[in-house]
Amino acid sequence: MGDPEMTLACLPIGHRAQVVKVGAEGLTRNRLLDLGLVPSTVVEAVRKSPAGDPVAYKIRGAIIALRSEESRLVTVRPLA
């Protein structure tokens, strides 16, 4: 069975996933990489803002809010 990949934007709250790829370009790409979203990093979706967007993620020891237009660009593999 192949690994089911999804975008980070689809990761349910309370779930963890491993980064496979950052699909963005230019400044957005740099920003996402600098936040620690490099391949194999484990990310946890912590909570949603009242409006549902942005979502807070735990990335390498810090809580960071990402808008869906950013989290959509990150491909992840959910962890059990």
Binding site: D34, G36, I59, R60, G61, A62
Partner: peptide, 11 residues
């Protein structure tokens, strides 16, 4: 750097 999340800060 923050001693509680060194890995992130070392970038």
């Amino acid at each position: 750097v923050d001693a509680t999340c060194l890995e992130r800060n070392l970038n």
